[in-house]
Design a protein around this nucleic acid. Structure first.
Length: 274
DNA sequence: AGATGCACCTGTATGC
DNA sequence: TGCATACAGGTGCATC
């Protein structure tokens, strides 16, 4: 579900409410969501610790604790982290509850149970979560046209598949790849080896702009996504191609088409994207 | 090494 | 209404 703008919105909504707050107790009701270490140790290590900072890298959340241990989370398709008063009804599919000293609970809810949590202790090497295999952040200077060209010009995959690869660039998913390729005027099935220098430049410039716009709108709530307070984002109405099959292209009026590329639904304008 | 396809899950929309 | 099928913001692993 959540891509970079949605995870960033969760981060921003939770950070001020969570920092310096102490965890009294952790309850895990679906142990499968704890990927490392085992659920018992996970709970034992977190009990009594305080949240010190909340960071985002790609689609991962990093909750840094006062012990310098880090709780890492990936929401995958339907995961949510929502802070709510302990007296509020616990939603269905809540798999982990962090009871805070201030009377609130941080709840991890995930209908499809693809989301995962990891606890990495201070000094421990994180070879578990995948966080260390990510490509550059789209907002970092190292994400530029030269980087994209050198990384991808020898590869045989479609540009759509390449941009979905988190080792190429961190944080893009199905929505923002389609939106970025539309904005750059590039057809999603094009092979990366055939993308021109000008096109790489357009992509490197446009991707951070598309993501920043969505962050301003607090993310896209296509279906399940909510921020750290359970609120929907407002970016859905801003999408130009994603989920707009049969509707007019906002640039040229042609009907938006839908196809499948890299096993994912793919939306594009047949006239604007070459 | 790089490419591909499927497995992991539940809920919802669609069609017969 | 009931049932079958397809599909959904993602990733990891087996296989070729």
């Amino acid at each position: 579900m959540p891509e970079l703008p949605e995870v960033e919105t969760v981060k921003r909504s939770l950070e001020p409410l969570l920092c310096q707050k102490k965890i009294n107790k952790v309850i895990i009701s679906k142990e499968i969501v704890i990927a490392h270490p085992d659920a018992d140790e996970f709970c034992r290590c977190l009990k009594g610790k305080s949240f010190e900072a909340l960071l985002r890298r790609g689609k991962y959340l990093q909750f840094v604790l006062n012990s310098k241990d880090t709780l890492i989370a990936h929401l995958r398709m339907t995961g949510r982290f929502v802070l709510a008063p302990a007296y509020e009804i616990i939603p269905k599919h809540t798999h982990a509850i962090f009871t805070l000293e201030d009377g609130n609970e941080l709840r991890f809810t995930d209908v499809r149970r693809f989301g995962r949590l990891w606890l990495i202790k201070e000094g421990e090497k994180d070879s578990f979560s995948g966080l260390n295999n990510l490509g550059p952040e789209p907002f970092s200077p190292s994400f530029n046209s030269q980087y994209l060209y050198h990384k991808l010009n020898k590869r045989k995959v479609s540009i759509k598949q390449a941009l979905l690869d988190q080792a190429v660039v961190a944080g893009l998913g199905n929505i923002y790849v389609d939106e970025s390729l539309f904005a750059a005027g590039i057809a999603p099935w094009r092979k990366t080896g055939e993308i021109t220098k000008e096109e790489w430049e357009r992509l490197a410039k446009i991707i951070p702009e598309i993501l920043a716009d969505s962050i301003k709108n607090r993310g896209t709530s296509f279906r399940d996504y909510r921020d750290g307070l359970g609120q929907k984002g407002d970016n859905l109405v801003r999408l130009k191609v994603y989920q707009r099959k049969g509707k007019p292209c906002p640039r040229c009026g042609e009907e938006i088409q839908k196809t499948v590329i890299a096993q994912r639904s793919t939306f594009y304008c047949p006239l604007c994207q070459k």
